[in-house]
Amino acid sequence: MIELENVAYSYGGGELLSEISLKLAPGSFHFLTGPSGAGKTTFLKLCYGALIPTAGDVHLFGQDVRAMTRDDIALSRRRIGVVHQDCRFLDHLPVAENVALPLTVAGADRLEDVANMKELLSWVGLSRRADALPPELSGGERQRAALARAVIQSPDVILADEPTGNIDWEMSQRLLTLLIELNRMGKTVMIATHDLSLIRAAKSHVQARVLRIANRRLQLAGADL
């Protein structure tokens, strides 16, 4: 689905990431870890075409990102749900409409989605907040709304950047359960986090691989957790 081949990225100056190769297979579950500033967010951005690698090749669903037009990238985003570290919303629209935004922009806003929408909001525990505006939400509610928005179009891949970054343990457990459930439905999941206890908690429920970014390289961190 997403393939990186010998990818390097530099923001100018030294390379932040180099010689990174990875294939995200359908239905796989990955954790991405590493110290702050190691390049986790950059790595995820390479995975959804927000950044073009300075060296090497990235293929999204079989297409080379360098050969993709801006519209191709936009269309591929409809198959990749992204949960950002700082979840951004359209602050003038209520939560329900923000969650439905991927459908709106895809022109797939249909009546039967209203039912799905309610189900999805109760699934992330936001039924009662559907009419609230995003600035009124707490950190945890924002994270869950962002997750709902990321999955509403039933994407093939879900990339989450520190989804538990500013929520308490109980809430992060809940969020993790949601992501594991999605993975069981066949979605590819990749979670960037530096919260090792979250990874340990997940390992008992799901066959997860843990990747670590260290010294600009991507390594498979296995049994040491």
Binding site: R70, A74, L90
Partner: peptide
Amino acid sequence: AQVIEVLRLVGATDGY
């Protein structure tokens, strides 16, 4: 700018 960024993230084309 934030609106555009959000729209772009959820798969809106430039035309939209």
